[in-house]
């Protein structure tokens, strides 16, 4: 964890610096009349101090010297693919509509987790898409994008 902490604490330190500067610009005000950035400035200041402590600890604490394998040995590329897939979904779903968008997403997700069975993947996707559409849009009156037919 030590090496990991060193990196992550620096990231949080940067984040706290940024948030601190931003909240300072918003105006801290005075104790009598606290401004918009008052609490945010306090919080980012504390975060900065704590991240620094974590960083310092990671430097001086004894422990494992090498980074444990965070990503190796795992199929983390799939994680990235899944993230890209749902981002794409969010991007195109309003345009193509819930039904088509969801069908494509589910096909991809089912496929990436157990590739090779196209028929079953398509059948599952079809079922989940229609059933969720029925439950959410029809029974619960949720407003899912209608898509294509608007054009």
């Amino acid at each position: 964890m030590k090496i990991l902490d060193r990196g992550s604490s620096l990231l949080w330190l940067l984040f706290s610096l940024y948030a601190g500067i931003e909240s300072f610009r918003l105006g801290i005000g005075t104790p009598t009349n606290p401004g918009m950035g008052f609490t945010a400035f306090g919080a980012s200041g504390l975060l900065g101090i704590l991240s620094f402590i974590l960083f310092w600890q990671s430097m001086v604490r004894k422990g494992e010297a090498t980074a444990p394998p965070v990503f190796s040995g795992s199929s983390w590329s799939k994680v990235v693919l899944v993230l890209i897939a749902i981002l794409l979904y969010a991007f195109v779903m309003p345009g193509v509509g819930y039904l088509l968008g969801t069908f494509l997403l589910m096909s991809f997700l089912f496929w990436i987790l157990s590739p090779g069975r196209v028929w079953r993947v398509l059948a599952y996707s079809f079922l989940t898409t229609t059933i969720t559409y029925y439950v959410f849009a029809k029974l619960l009156n949720a407003q899912l994008p209608e898509g294509l037919l608007r054009f």
């Binding site: 959410f136 949720a142 407003q143 899912l144």
Partner: peptide, 25 residues
């Protein structure tokens, strides 16, 4: 392999249907 895509879908629908905002996704 079936459950996780479904969970993802429920998360997506759930987050969207609060405000009907793609931004929430």
């Amino acid at each position: 392999r079936v459950l996780f895509p479904l969970i993802l879908l429920f998360c997506l629908i759930g987050a969207y249907s609060v405000n009907n905002l793609i931004f929430d996704l």
